Simulated assay, not measured.
Amino acid sequence: MRPDIKTAISGLSSSAQRTLAAEASACLAFLGEHLPQDERIHALCPAAVRTDLALNSVLALTDRRVLFVAPLPQVLSWPLAQLDDFSSFDLKARAVGLSVTANGRDYSLGIGRGYGDVFVRLVVQATAVARLRTL
Rank of each mutant, 00 (worst) to 15 (best):
V66T: 04
A93V: 05
Q125V: 10
A47L: 13
V129R: 08
A48G: 12
S108W: 07
S13V: 06
A130Y: 13
P36Y: 02
F30V: 03
A60W: 02
A81C: 02
T19Y: 08
S14Y: 04
L28F: 15
P3Q: 11
Y107V: 03
G110Y: 02
I111M: 14
G104A: 10
A130F: 11
V118L: 13
T7D: 08
A43R: 13
P36W: 02
A24S: 05
L55P: 13
L67P: 05
G116C: 06
Y115F: 13
G112P: 06
L122F: 07
D117K: 11
C45Q: 13
D90C: 12
R94L: 12
S108E: 13
L12C: 08
I41V: 15
E33L: 12
F68C: 05
A95R: 14
F119G: 09
D38I: 01
A81S: 03
A47Q: 11
L20T: 00
T7S: 09
W78D: 00
V49M: 12
R105Q: 13
T51M: 11
A60L: 03
A26S: 13
L76Q: 09
V69E: 07
N103P: 00
R113W: 14
T51H: 15
V69Y: 10
S13Y: 08
A24Y: 06
D84T: 07
F119M: 08
L109E: 05
K6H: 05
S57N: 07
G104S: 08
L135S: 12
A26T: 10
S108I: 08
